[in-house]
């Protein structure tokens, strides 16, 4: 059996936040926009907190959850939105549908039209990403694991979060490359890590510990 011997080039990602000018004051308005905004916007509001530094573990990573809790005081909805398993989706379309399906009945069912206070509106944003080589290249599998500790969080984020869901790849880039190299067990072990349940530092450490 032959394997692809291409090296792994770690990439990194920089981003600008794009403002859509769309805002919501209540769940009905949120739902209307959710059906129309770009997939990039859905990805941004469900993922950007994972890249940010946090002094404490955030109560909610999703902007939709946080807004439901803080601006609308809809705690149960916030919890339901936070419980959406991001790993279960292989496309933003599915994720968007799950969010809408969670909010929809809630908005109709509770019989009231809770409005946020002025100044607390939900502002839809998205990101414009710039992907560039980080300059770190792993020639082979041992080299990959040797270099991993020196790879920046933005790089880990790109190869794990962006690559899988936003760029529509089946798995994270590390697992895909290791599988090409014939290290299927390693690839599967990394694929089984849940990046939504740990910080980027922890994720890098966990991957590094799986190495040969």
């Amino acid at each position: 059996m032959t394997h692809n011997l291409a090296p792994f080039a770690f990439h990194t990602e920089r981003r600008l936040v794009v403002l859509t000018g769309r805002k919501a004051r209540n769940l009905e308005e949120l739902l209307a926009h959710l059906g129309e905004v770009s997939g990039s916007s859905i990805f941004y509001h469900t993922h950007h907190q994972y890249l940010a530094h946090h002094f404490e573990t955030p109560v909610f990573h999703s902007d939709f959850s946080r807004w439901a809790s803080l601006a609308l005081l809809e705690e149960a909805l916030a919890e339901k939105l936070a419980a959406i398993d991001l790993l279960a989706f292989s496309s933003i379309r599915q994720l968007r549908e799950a969010i809408i399906a969670t909010i929809g009945p809630y908005a109709k069912g509770n019989g009231r039209r809770q409005e946020c206070m002025p100044g607390q509106e939900f502002h839809f944003s998205e990101s414009k990403s710039f992907v560039m080589p980080s300059g770190i290249v792993a020639a082979d599998i041992p080299d990959f694991f040797a270099k991993l500790p020196g790879v920046a969080n933005t790089s880990i984020y790109f190869h794990f979060f962006e690559a899988r869901l936003r760029l529509g790849r089946e798995t994270n880039d590390f697992s895909a490359w290791l599988a090409y190299r014939g290290a299927e067990d390693l690839a599967r072990a990394i694929d089984r890590l849940n990046p939504y349940r740990m910080s980027l530092d922890e994720l890098r450490d966990r991957i590094a510990r799986l190495g040969p």
Partner: peptide
């Protein structure tokens, strides 16, 4: 330089 592109890929 990249209007309309949400993900811009840059060469080294």
């Amino acid at each position: 330089d990249h209007p309309g592109e949400r993900v811009v890929r840059l060469a080294g």
